[in-house]
Simulated assay, not measured.
Amino acid sequence: MTGGDLAARQAELVAALVAGGPLPAGFAPAPVDAARRALLRKRGGDVARHWPLLAAGLGAAWPATFGGWAAGRPTNGSLRDGWDLARELRDRGVLPALGAEELAVREAAARYDGHRPPRPRRLPAVGRAGGAVAVQLAGRVRLLRPASR
């Protein structure tokens, strides 16, 4: 096996583990599936550390909600993964109140287009999600209205 072949097989395995790619030939499905589930749990824990209110708002549904959303998606980092998940839940109308407040605060504090890393806002800004409203003035973010519970 040449170095290029090995690199290609490694890339296939990584895609199967973290991006929903097909199982590469020569690998047993059960161990790869177990590793995929373990990596999703670890990734979910990392996202929950960056988005504690979102995870708390989902409670016992957090692992299944995050796992279902993240399966088949490569990570963009814990902060961005949480942001993308919160926006998707908001768009589907199922974002819990705590997650809405956390998202509103993040939206007021930083600019995030879903593609590039978030950047701090310099000008006054308002963030809204699920009835929650946050405002950023002079670098300070305040939650003006909590989400409906």
Rank of each mutant, 00 (worst) to 15 (best):
D46S: 13
L98I: 00
L39S: 01
A64T: 03
V94M: 09
A55P: 12
G72S: 02
G68A: 05
L123K: 11
H50N: 02
L79Y: 14
L39N: 02
R121C: 05
A64I: 01
F66W: 13
R37W: 00
R36M: 06
L40D: 04
A108N: 01
V47I: 10
G68I: 07
W51H: 12
L79G: 09
H115G: 06
A38P: 03
F66R: 09
A61V: 03
P74M: 00
R122Q: 07
L79Q: 07
A97P: 13
W83C: 10
D91M: 04
G68R: 11
R43M: 04
P74C: 08
P31V: 01
L39C: 02
L85H: 06
L123D: 07
A61W: 00
E88H: 15
G93K: 09
G45L: 12
P117N: 11
L98G: 08
G72V: 02
R73Y: 08
L39K: 03
G68Q: 01
F27Y: 15
G67M: 00
L89H: 12
S78T: 09
G99A: 11
G114K: 09
G67E: 11
R37Q: 14
K42W: 07
L53H: 14
R43N: 12
G57Y: 05
A34S: 05
D113T: 03
G44P: 03
G57T: 05
G82I: 05
R106A: 15
G114D: 03
R116G: 08
E88G: 13
S78A: 15
G57K: 14
P96S: 07
F27G: 00
L54E: 07
A86I: 11
E107P: 00
P117G: 01
A30M: 04
R90H: 09
T75C: 03
A86S: 07
R87T: 04
R80A: 15
L39E: 12
P96Q: 08
V105K: 05
R80L: 06
